[in-house]
Amino acid sequence: MAKKTSGRGQRDLRVQVRTARGRKLSSTRWLDRQLNDPYVRRAKANGYRGRAAYKIIELDDKYRFLVPGARVVDLGCAPGGWSQVAVERTNALGERAGKPQGRVIGIDLKPVDPIAGAELHVLDFLSEAADAQVRAWLVGRADVVMSDMAASASGHKQTDHLRIVALCEAAAELAFDVLEEGGTFVAKVLAGGAETGLQTLLKQRFEKVSNVKPPASRADSSEKFVVATGFRG
């Protein structure tokens, strides 16, 4: 059962989650964090499909890659928060008069609920012909390839780290095949040491590679984001 509490002078009420019969302590802690997470509340209020939308918002506020007219590929796009932001910022719906209209291609292994302004496809980006298929959908090349993907958690920190780095490296390889010269690659990684090879690879192909932990990324999470700009082609 959840109980709203507030201290003297506080305007926002905190939801206190009590341990319910049959619920594990870890589940109670997760529920407490979700109910009291300001990004979760903001996402619901603004119609985003998850708090992760604010991660790409904060990254784009800093690096300005989701510009009107940009062609964006969102890998592993479910549930769709990043694609929603990309639609808004690239003017994919053409609602901003006088601004070029962008395109947003979302890709995932399973169907994703429709998003106005985004073209959502079921595709395994690791398949051999994935890059050609993406270029066909775009009728050209992309200005941005972005990925908030994470491999299924195994419970072993180092194994999970290696899996997500491998996934990020695969996403980077697809980006090399579909990006326009000058393009941007954005992807989530987990800090842990194995990402050194990825950094070296990206520095060979992009003018600038930055590692960022946006404010929306929880402090207790080892995730960070690599933002590689100025693709050399």
Rank of each mutant, 00 (worst) to 15 (best):
A45W: 13
A20D: 09
R71C: 00
L93N: 04
W30A: 15
L25H: 10
G102F: 04
A86R: 00
V73P: 02
V122T: 06
V122K: 10
V85S: 07
P68Q: 05
I107P: 00
I56A: 09
G22N: 05
E88I: 04
A45L: 09
R96T: 13
L123R: 13
E119L: 08
N91I: 04
S26Y: 09
G81C: 11
K44R: 15
S27T: 14
V67C: 13
A116K: 13
K62W: 11
K55V: 13
Q101S: 14
E58V: 08
L120Q: 09
G80V: 04
T90E: 09
L25P: 10
V112A: 11
E58W: 12
D124K: 05
A116I: 11
L31D: 10
E88H: 08
V85A: 01
W82L: 00
K44C: 12
G69N: 03
L120F: 06
P114L: 08
D74C: 03
R42H: 08
V87Q: 00
V87F: 03
L25M: 10
E58L: 09
A53T: 08
L75E: 03
R96Q: 14
E88S: 08
I105Y: 05
G22R: 03
K55A: 08
R23E: 15
G117T: 02
I107A: 01
G80W: 04
V67G: 10
V72A: 00
V112I: 07
R33F: 09
R23C: 15
R41A: 14
Y54S: 04
I56Q: 10
P38A: 11
R21M: 10
A70K: 00
D113L: 15
E88C: 07
R49T: 06
V122C: 11
R51L: 07
G98D: 08
A116S: 12
P111N: 05
R51E: 02
Y39R: 03
S26F: 12
E119T: 10
K44M: 12
P100R: 03
R49M: 07
N91E: 06
D37L: 08
V73R: 00
G22F: 00
R103E: 00
G117F: 02
G106D: 09
L35A: 13
P114A: 04
A70T: 01
